[in-house]
Amino acid sequence: MKAIINGRIITENEVLENKVLLYNDKILEFREQQTPELLLKTCEEVIDVKGNYVSPGFIDMHIHGAGGHDVMDGTVESLAAISSTVAKNGVTGFLPTTMTMSKKKIYAALDNISCLMGKETQGAKILGAHVEGPFINKKYKGAQPEECIIEPNFSFIEKYINIIKIITLAPEMDENFNFIKEVKEKTNIILSIGHSNAEYEQAMEAIEKGVSHATHTFNAMTPLNHRKPGIIGAIFNSDIYCELIADKIHVHPAIFKILEEIKGMDKIILITDSVRAGCLHDGISELAGQKVIIKDNTVRLEDGTLAGSMLKLNQAIKNYMDCTGKGICEAVKLASLNPSNELGIEKQRGSLEVGKYSDIAILDEALNVQQTIVEGKTVFRI
């Protein structure tokens, strides 16, 4: 058994002070404050966090890479390196996200995700895969290679239905919504609208058929217009979950509060959409075989198209708080409990509660990560 003392513990609705958090691989108890000497009689380790926040670990549902590594490298070593890198940002669980590339490369990436899914690493836990493409629309392809885009096809993903948690697709490319219907009938995979040219009516019908999530909301989709409400109108008029890249670059900060007012805090999920360039410095990098330029905290193709982000999830939470005035309990939920709820793992992860896994991030006042604990094991410490 281990203990965390002198922390401000972030729970769902309040920040607890003068409490001891006792844990092993799962959270055991919240106890009144005791001296380290007394605790050491029963605990193998006592961690004094000296007034810092004790937060539930973060879950990134949409991340392609970080620290010079990419999911599409197709190696266990790259996945492990991404896991280790994002743990430095307080991430304790994530969905490695594939891109629109050849079937061979997508399958290689999924095979490696399958190898590490649920296994212990020196970083964040791999909870499954997010397949972004190749079932998208060329008009809103963003940085996804056009030559690899194909129509939705259940046989393409059939072998991997037990590891895929989310599929991003353009529903207008799905004839009679046959793919959506088959996925909903045969799997528990979350279907997400993204990289799509769907009109409002198409998007609403897709939602009725089973789409329940929006990929990087506002980006790579038809915008809101008073005569053509588009995908944004459908998102606003439904109860689907919304990803948000809160880097203040992909989406104007004023939009954060607008989205919150319309959707409510329970339906927003902060993601990074981080790519290989995440956590690196200015220079040249690569994405799906394309040259990208890292400059001023952005990642862009040579033509200026945004190509993912360099965002860290702890910084996304800080940005959200700064731009909306929300408190830390509410903002942290957008990157912990909300993704857990949608993934159906809220009984195991997503908040600091007795019986849940000890997935914990220790944060200073500016939300810089001091320590990250995954299932009771410290995987990062400054």
Rank of each mutant, 00 (worst) to 15 (best):
R349E: 02
I63S: 08
N319H: 10
D25R: 08
H62V: 09
V54K: 12
N319V: 05
G376H: 04
A234D: 10
A246E: 09
N338D: 08
C323E: 15
T272P: 13
F30S: 06
K248E: 10
S84P: 00
P253R: 04
G325V: 08
F156H: 15
A129I: 10
I255R: 00
E158H: 06
E243M: 12
T217S: 15
P56R: 08
E201A: 14
G123N: 13
I232L: 15
L270A: 09
K356A: 09
G142C: 11
D60V: 11
N89A: 14
G278F: 09
P152S: 09
I9C: 03
K138G: 00
K312D: 12
E158W: 00
F256H: 13
V46R: 12
S192H: 09
M173F: 03
K228D: 11
N112M: 04
H250E: 12
V369I: 13
P339L: 12
I163H: 04
S78V: 05
G133P: 04
K181T: 15
N219M: 13
G67T: 05
A316L: 08
M99N: 13
L116Q: 09
D25Q: 14
E185P: 00
T168I: 11
P229S: 05
E201Y: 11
N52Y: 02
G278M: 07
L301C: 11
E77H: 01
T222P: 11
